[in-house]
């Protein structure tokens, strides 16, 4: 299934894949819409390792969003097996999934999803609150995460006092603050102009170099090109799993 390692490109770094983080085997997802049954996923197999930078692509209706929800432990599959760091999460209950989301997954949303009345610092602290980290450490780690995305001087700004690109940086800091196994970004540049979008993608590049594992879900070829590996979905199945830049 896994293609041989592509040759190293001059323009960008490749890091050797590490241990297995995600293994999906024969995963299916059915939705019942009234009398009709929709097969969103029809048997997907995928393995994702530490240090990968992966894009999931596909047109609307391809099952891309369903797969992302599954990978993010927001939803559970109808059939098949999903191992996250060796633990089968396919049959976990709500609160167990919340625990995984909190500790292992950093979400970045298209619409940023920041709390409008909280400043950047508190937004970034939030996952640490749910993880039970004390106030002092929380603050310290959140400040560090904000500094890392270049917002060290904006920590007390509310979302409406920040530009779109800055908001997405806050969201990325929030996603990384609890040191997750994967960063899961859903159309991270969808609400940004192309120049700001490129800035965010450059930040992703930098985060990848720092040792983060990144999964980007997108329908834009330009965005997907930044990844080291592209998984293309069509009609609920993996159409191609390619490693460009070779």
């Amino acid at each position: 299934m896994i293609a041989p390692l592509p040759p190293v490109a001059t323009a960008r770094s490749y890091r050797p894949p590490g241990s297995l983080v995600i293994r999906i085997e024969g995963v299916t997802k059915l939705y019942r819409m009234g009398a009709e049954t929709v097969h969103a996923l029809r048997g997907v197999n995928v393995e994702i390792r530490r240090n990968e930078y992966l894009a999931i692509m596909g047109p609307s209706g391809s099952g891309k969003s369903t797969l992302m929800n599954m990978l993010g432990c927001l939803d559970t599959p109808t059939g098949g097996r999903y191992d996250f760091n060796g633990k089968n999460v396919a049959h976990m209950v709500d609160d167990e999934l919340a625990e995984i989301r909190n500790r292992e997954i950093g979400f970045v949303f298209q619409t940023f999803n920041l709390l409008p009345r909280s400043d950047a610092l508190h937004n970034v602290e939030l996952p640490l609150v749910y993880a039970g980290v004390g106030p002092a450490e929380r603050r310290e780690r959140a400040l560090e995460a904000l500094k890392n995305v270049g917002l060290g001087d904006r920590v007390h700004h509310k979302p409406n006092e920040l530009s779109g690109g800055q908001r997405q940086r806050v969201a990325i800091a929030r996603a990384l603050v609890n040191r997750p196994s994967i960063l899961l970004a859903d159309e991270p540049t969808g609400n940004l102009d192309s120049r700001t979008g490129e800035e965010i993608m450059a930040l992703f590049e930098q985060l990848y170099d720092q040792g983060n594992t990144i999964i980007v879900v997108t329908h834009e070829e330009d965005i997907a090109r930044h990844a080291r590996r592209i998984v293309r979905l069509r009609d609920g199945l993996i159409e191609r799993d390619e490693r460009p830049g070779a």
Binding site: L74, D94, D95, A98, E99, R101, N102, L126, Y130, A131
Partner: peptide, 16 residues
């Protein structure tokens, strides 16, 4: 509702 979704994605449990 959307905020609740975000909080859940960030790891808020039901009782939270």
């Amino acid at each position: 509702t959307k905020e609740i979704g975000t909080r859940k994605a960030l790891g808020a449990r039901r009782r939270t």
